[in-house]
Nucleic acid binder design. Sequence first.
DNA 1: ACGTTTGCAGTAACCGCTTTCAGGGACCAT
DNA 2: ATGGTCCCTGAAAGCGGTTACTGCAAACGT
Lengths: 332, 332
Amino acid sequence: MGNKRLTVREIARIAEVSVATVSRVSRGTGQVSPEMRERVLRVIDEYGYRPSQMGRALAQQKHGSVAIVFPGLAGPYFSELVQGFEAEAVAAGIGVHILVTHHRADSDGNVLDMASRVDGVAVHGDTVSTETMRRIAAEVPTVVLAGRPLDGVPAVRADNSAIGELTRHLLVDHGYRGLAFVGNPDGSPDVTERWEAFKAAHKAARVAVPRSPIRLGLQQSDGVLAAGELLDGRKPPRAVVCANDETALGMLIGALGRGLSVPGEVAITGFDDVPMASLVQPRLTTVRQPIRELGATTARLLISGLGNPGAVMDAVLTTEPVLRESCGCPRT
Amino acid sequence: MGNKRLTVREIARIAEVSVATVSRVSRGTGQVSPEMRERVLRVIDEYGYRPSQMGRALAQQKHGSVAIVFPGLAGPYFSELVQGFEAEAVAAGIGVHILVTHHRADSDGNVLDMASRVDGVAVHGDTVSTETMRRIAAEVPTVVLAGRPLDGVPAVRADNSAIGELTRHLLVDHGYRGLAFVGNPDGSPDVTERWEAFKAAHKAARVAVPRSPIRLGLQQSDGVLAAGELLDGRKPPRAVVCANDETALGMLIGALGRGLSVPGEVAITGFDDVPMASLVQPRLTTVRQPIRELGATTARLLISGLGNPGAVMDAVLTTEPVLRESCGCPRT
DNA sequence: ACGTTTGCAGTAACCGCTTTCAGGGACCAT
DNA sequence: ATGGTCCCTGAAAGCGGTTACTGCAAACGT
């Protein structure tokens, strides 16, 4: 510790070869005779030489890392997303930068700043303004994550329309009326699409949407709050469609805590199919979304997919309703 | 998009000044006359010049970013920790790298690899071997996060002994016998210390520890599993001390789902004081730990505190028992 | 009026690695 | 024996900034 790192020149001097040879050996590229390779490797190993990433980056004109920008880490959704992204990048030998915006407007500067440290940026749908998005994309290859493509910027997202099927299931198969939607459509592109699908399903079933969405966040605690808002009122809903599983679980906890029967008195559905969804009692009806795959696909696109001819511009991953007991279906 | 980025030499040529002047203006260091500054700034602004981080890194011999290594992102603990770390670093203009080990043994190579991309590394206690830890520390300034200091490597951690006070509270104040501990002491330094404190409190109260710990993970789903293991047995515990809030919440869900009264038939406590702890019914008795501050302190230490004379070697943040209803205390 | 300080701008030498290009030796075919 | 290939190796030119040092002119002091 403290002894200055040695450079490629030092190694070359010690091994009595040229720096070019050392570089070729350490990178494993180009032609090197076995005895040369052996000699250099011995010295590299003995002195524990590791090439400087700074020098390498400058010479190759690439940082060797990508970034992911998202609003916060609360809940399993972002955890899975980030982990999927990270795992894929690391598997490709690429480093991962993160930037959390915390929903603050003044993070645009940070985003731009960060964009100059990486070879590619994945920006989650509800983090920065369209304008900032464009400026990032002008600096560095960019992908929109969980949002719509923008100009030349490709996107990776999940099919939110399945929440429409779920709504239809509640309205038609179960015959429920008086549904509530928990989630803020202005909060993120995903919730926007889910609210639209919820409304569309009502229209298709010729049922009026009974009330405005409960505009809260997407955390479990928001679900608990939503339970207070909906279930203590004079006219509680017969079924609650939550924008994600976290709020659905909070709603469930809130409902059970009030002594209500689920799904007997109020049915509850979510979106994501997080692990807890099948562990609670009653098990949660939801929509399965491949969150990890979403992150992984984004990383792949960023690392090797961009700029290729025929590169995908809008990857939409499939989702699937999962009917369990919280909607009123019998246990299979 | 696609037009090659311009360099400091380009800007110098256009503004008809030397590269040194451009650099001085863009960095804001050194003496530059007002008219020169003005002229350079105009060109920088007009052409949207942003200095390359690679060139800057090489010249200054610093990457301008730090890394945090942890086992996974499941649950609010790691989310808060990472966000605290990230926020502090970004506020100091430093980028943040992450590396998730996923508890895989073969991630040592990745860690070393990553260590050469940053100016400092924070390693969470239960991620890499002692040997790897040493090798990282030999390459780059390092801090242990939620673990004990190691050789010359400082640590930042929370005081886990408060779980002993909580155990004493259950044994003495409430007079419970037959306590169970949920958490794997070999899983992480934190859990080790909590299990030790749990045992020490038994010893102090002259009560035998009734059984081995339930060695499961720290996620909410593990708490649900632990509930199955403990509550369906012939001799269920009177109280369950969980290694963290997540497992305690899972345990609570499992207990309530079995129709058991909490805390009447089984008392439950946690550790962390996550937001959900005060939202569930009954509210969770736990130990408050400043998770975010843990991450922030680590980042501060890494960025500006290391190497200073009198630098802290072992920062222990204080914790505090929070008595709510899940242990049997009356609602205040 | 003359020497000395002071302020500002420019030249050029790095920072550490990659890679092109050129050179040299061994081997092959004629 | 000789010209041509093929394989390796090394010298050197970047990659894009930063900064020590140099030089010049203006301001200052006596």
